[in-house]
Design a protein around this nucleic acid. Structure first.
Ligand SMILES: [Mn+2]
Ligand SMILES: [Mn+2]
Ligand SMILES: [Zn+2]
Ligand SMILES: [Zn+2]
Lengths: 147, 147
DNA sequence: GATTAGTTGATACTGAGTATCATAAGGAGC
DNA sequence: GCTCCTTATGATACTCAGTATCAACTAATC
């Protein structure tokens, strides 16, 4: 897992400047273990540092996505959510009840992708796999409540 | 592949009314072989039937998604696109250059999903797999232009 | 410390999608 | 075909996420 300093250093190496707002946003983002929206970040940081601008939040999240620090995940509402990404290629399972997210590795889609490339004549460059279901906690509660 | 009449009949059986606007929208939608936005539908139909309302287009696309006639696919811009779905469970590959879409069947994710359920303790209820790459045509053109 | 290019945030804007509501029209039953 | 009731429509106004603009500011390099 990456540290605030390492991420700011990566920004610096990229030719970006290390600013107050960027530092605060990175600190906040690294604390999140559930997916969050740009608005979540904005509202939370406004309480800490009243001057921060909405546009800066969007811009910094774009930058963090480019750096691979966060990943954009799709939300059915059509708006973007972000999750802090571990190192390496990962995917997510989202709990449809409480919003909890679990990562998993080793998606091993390669054989499937090869067969699809064959079937469709496309050259597959990227894939996006998102799963949804019930986390362990919510499996129990759903049974208790609705059965 | 479903016909306009079969879809309108399905609406009727569901307790919905078969109206002029719905008929026109269904006719238009079934002609599409690439993903389209609600706005695409609205603009195209305005030329044919000036009175059609934007809200009706959104509402009818919602209805068609519920009926399984179209599927919502995610567009990186964050807005929704729709594709006409064939029968059965399918997924899509989108060409990042020309927007062409190919469907494929037999995703056979079950073994992978089982291992993920095991790994994360989630009960997996749904999956969403979207691939992107280059269609056969664009593979040729990309090489011709950029190499 | 002076210089300069990148960054910020206030403001205004865009564009997708939704809420409202008076009016229009489908369809079941007669 | 006509009645009656319920659903659907579309004009309008609105919300909300995200973006463009731009003058003021500031991090980094020398
Ligand atoms: Mn993967
Ligand atoms: Mn599948
Ligand atoms: Zn849960
Ligand atoms: Zn293509």
């Amino acid at each position: 897992m990456r540290t605030v300093e390492a991420i700011l250093e990566a920004m610096h190496e990229r030719g970006c400047r290390v600013t107050g707002p960027r530092r605060v946003i990175v600190e906040f983002v690294l604390e999140q273990c559930e997916p969050f929206s740009a608005e979540d970040v904005f509202r939370a940081l406004r309480r800490v540092q009243q001057t921060i601008g909405r546009a800066t939040v969007f811009r910094t999240l774009d930058l963090l996505a480019e750096l691979g620090v966060v990943e954009r995940v799709h939300h059915p509402s059509g708006t973007h959510r972000y999750v802090v990404s571990s190192d390496g290629h990962r995917h997510h399972v989202v709990c449809i009840r409480c919003g909890r997210v679990a990562e998993f590795s080793g998606c091993n889609l390669e054989p499937i992708l090869a067969s699809i490339a064959d079937q469709t004549r496309f050259r597959i460059l990227d894939h996006w796999l998102e799963l949804s279901g019930l986390c362990q906690t919510c499996q129990g509660e759903t049974m208790a409540v609705s059965r």
